[in-house]
């Protein structure tokens, strides 16, 4: 097998492993828009990385971390709703990122690659990043699972029982930012949130417990990734969009199947 295909497969597997459980929390806590905002900020990170001649992933991590921090600080006021703040930041970051990319002279920025993913360009360094972050996400969510769950199910009840709700929220935001920073290589800035939420949403249709949902999200993510990647390879389609399209078809099929089952039960 060619190296670049092997790298692509390994990258997909690495991302799916952490995106499954993390995506569940994003779905449960309605953080999808946060994911989008962080992803949009990533483009500015790319520009920063290129500008300062450092590892692009590092540049992305720095910018996404800053955006996360800004959201945490701004979230403490009551005048502007969180989703408005997210909307402002998401589009502002994308605008600034596109401007920065346009201003970068001397470097050819593969804008399409960053926006929609360029899975065949995955390098060995990218793989190291992906697996390091994936391992970190799995370790932290595994270790904090019960507390994350408690804080997700009822924030105030969790606080009354001594769960450090605020800290956990920040940890979750940081893990999401890190995952997006490394996973954007595969499906791109504009599609990355789909990798997090669609497998989790599909898993919700069939899961009977939170743990089942996390495990099924990994399975659904892997199936969608392999199906989309394979389909893109055979039909010569862009891989990122093909993966997201496959994930969506799986979700819709599941949803339809559930609907038919429910209708059947109710008659």
């Amino acid at each position: 097998m060619d190296n670049f295909i092997l790298y692509a497969l390994l990258a997909g597997l690495g991302i799916v492993l952490s995106a499954g459980p993390l995506g569940c929390f994003i779905v449960w806590r309605q953080m999808a828009f946060f994911g989008d905002t962080v992803a949009h900020a990533a483009l500015l990170g790319v520009a920063l990385g290129l500008l300062l001649d450092m590892d692009v992933t590092l540049g992305v991590i720095i910018i996404t971390a800053l955006v996360t921090l800004a959201l945490i600080v701004l979230g403490n006021q009551r005048l502007i709703a969180t989703d408005t703040l997210l909307g402002i930041l998401a589009h502002a970051m994308l605008a600034f990122g596109l401007i920065a990319a346009a201003l970068l002279t001397g470097v050819r920025v593969d804008l399409m690659g960053y926006l929609f993913g360029d899975i065949l360009a995955i390098s060995r360094t990218d793989l190291y990043w992906i697996y390091a972050i994936s391992a970190l996400v799995l370790a932290v969510t595994g270790f904090l699972w019960k507390r994350f769950l408690m804080a997700t199910i009822h924030e105030e009840l969790a606080m009354a029982e001594g769960v450090p709700v605020r800290d956990l929220k920040i940890v979750l935001m940081i893990l999401t930012a890190l995952t997006i920073a490394t996973a954007m290589k595969v499906v791109g800035i504009l599609l990355i949130t789909a990798m997090l939420i669609i497998p989790a949403a599909t898993a919700r249709l069939f899961a009977r417990s939170p743990e089942q949902m996390a495990a099924l999200a990994i399975v659904a993510g892997l199936a969608g990734f392999l199906g989309g990647f394979g389909g893109a390879f055979v039909l010569d389609l862009p891989a990122g969009p093909a993966i997201v399209a496959t994930l969506t078809l799986m979700f819709l099929t599941g949803f339809g199947a559930m609907g038919i089952l429910q209708g059947y039960k109710n008659t």
Binding site: M150, T152, I153, H154, E161, R208, S209, M213
Partner: peptide
Amino acid sequence: VGYLPQNFPLSGRIPLSVARLVALN
């Protein structure tokens, strides 16, 4: 302390059996 909060918006988003809810945390 055992606390029973006023609002408990348990949506269907999280699959949770009664057993899990009761044993939570």
